[in-house]
Nucleic acid binder design. Structure first.
Lengths: 255, 255
DNA sequence: TTTTGACCCTGACCAAAGTCAAGGGGCGCC
DNA sequence: GGCGCCCCTTGACTTTGGTCAGGGTCAAAA
């Protein structure tokens, strides 16, 4: 199983434990930068040095609110990584109002598709909350892709893996009740297939709740119910009495 | 807006209307094959002739239930596209039982990641319902990627677009009530930004319900409630009285 | 013609999640 | 210590979606 908190916990290692603490206002420097960027879908599974070459002509930006990053129609010679703050992508409707297509929060990227295919941004992008961004230049990115053929394959492979992760998350959201999603989240934190397991939550309950798509009050109740199934929660450490039987419960379709 | 029924309706054109009818038992031939394959994430946005080159040494397979496609550890010199039937990916637990990691249904693909990166399948694959598959050979695929550099970029771009689609669907599932998801689905069927719009559902209500993650009874109720908001459904044709105001209702966060 | 089955709607009921409000425990700080 | 703050839990209540059962419409088959 892969690390279940991947999109949020910023730690690229599969044996993820806890994040470094509450999200700081990031300064794009050194290893912290690398770890966050390596956690992006686009870079899933790439080595650190490959990453450095890909991002050779990239720059870190500190942007204030209301900064316009690009307009629709502009040449897409870069894409962006959001380390902190928020950026909105929007279109202008015929009658002049703007319709927000997407809002990007840390840590995510946008504009890759435009840069890689059309070469033109189809939407406008504006910073809506003071942001720290990485602007990834096209040149080094592309030349690296060309120079080392395996990089492109591995990047494709990484995106395919992510695609499956997301698809399966969608299925779970649609056909599993919340308590099963919570249970599976916990199970994904351990390698054990049978017997007892001790895991620690990679972040606080508020975030865990939003991760599985419920409110934190509901999460409390779910954890209370799971206690009857041998899942003892205490602070952010959890003991699962019998991993095997819990897995079996989750595998059952429907209710 | 992109065609909202993309994963299911098999019609690659953005101005999607209806599928060709209930899913037939597919025979992998001619244009039908092409359209289905072009609807896959991996091939999103590629032209037909590029596709043909990529799949030059591919073969269509008709597999019976229980056919083992590959075992964990085998060389991954191909990947598979499921046109019909079902295939399970599973691992064997230390104690000999099998744990199903994923089940693939039409139309989807699996094994790309293994083929493109490691070259080894990490799991076992077995047909669990008589299936029509395309086995996409590695050689032609890779040589095409190499010969035409733009293809690789466009494939990467396509996967990035899909990634965003899936991410946004996940967000919707987690933070939007069902009626908003239904409304947004309907809105995505029209290009209109304001005024009246007439759209036709690309498939029956059963599938539409599962598409937005609710039961068909709930969908009926949702559509009944939407009637008060100026959404008149009749058969599979829908009239939206005021697209603008409906969009505004959906844009409101929460409640 | 009747029958059958696919598809859809509706009502009654129930279980579950959201909401609102209150409160407990841990912890740092004055 | 006393205070406030954060995180979490609990209870009461509301809302909503799932479930089950009934029934309507339509078209193709008998």
């Amino acid at each position: 199983m892969s690390c279940p908190c991947r999109p949020l916990c910023l730690v690229p290692k599969p044996n993820c434990s806890k994040p470094d603490g509450p999200l700081p206002r990031h300064r794009a420097t050194g290893p912290a930068l690398a770890r966050q960027v390596m956690a992006l879908p686009l870079f899933d599974g790439l080595e650190h040095d490959v990453l450095e070459r890909l991002m050779a002509d990239s720059t870190a930006l500190a942007c204030d609110r209301r900064t316009l990053l690009f307009s629709a129609g502009a040449a897409a010679d870069c894409f962006y990584i959001v380390l902190d703050g928020q950026v909105k992508l929007f279109a202008l409707t015929p009658d002049g109002r703007e319709s927000i297509v997407e809002v990007f929060t840390p840590v995510s990227s946008f504009g890759e598709a435009a840069m890689l295919s059309m070469g033109i941004f189809p939407l406008h992008a504006e910073v809506i909350e003071d942001a720290t961004l990485i602007k990834v230049g096209r040149r080094a990115f592309i030349t690296t892709l060309q120079s080392d053929r395996a990089v492109a394959y591995r990047m494709l492979a990484g995106l395919c893996r992510w695609h499956q992760r997301l698809s399966s998350e969608i299925r779970h959201l649609k056909e599993q009740p919340p308590w099963q999603r919570v249970a599976e989240f916990l199970l994904a934190l351990t390698d054990a297939q049978v017997g007892e397991a001790l895991v620690s939550l990679p972040f606080n309950k508020e975030i865990l709740a939003s991760r599985v798509g419920i409110r934190r009050e509901s999460l409390s109740r779910v954890l209370a119910r799971l206690r009857d199934m041998g899942v003892r929660t205490e602070g952010n450490s959890v003991r699962i009495d019998d991993v095997g039987s819990l897995r079996r419960l989750c595998a059952e379709t429907g209710h």
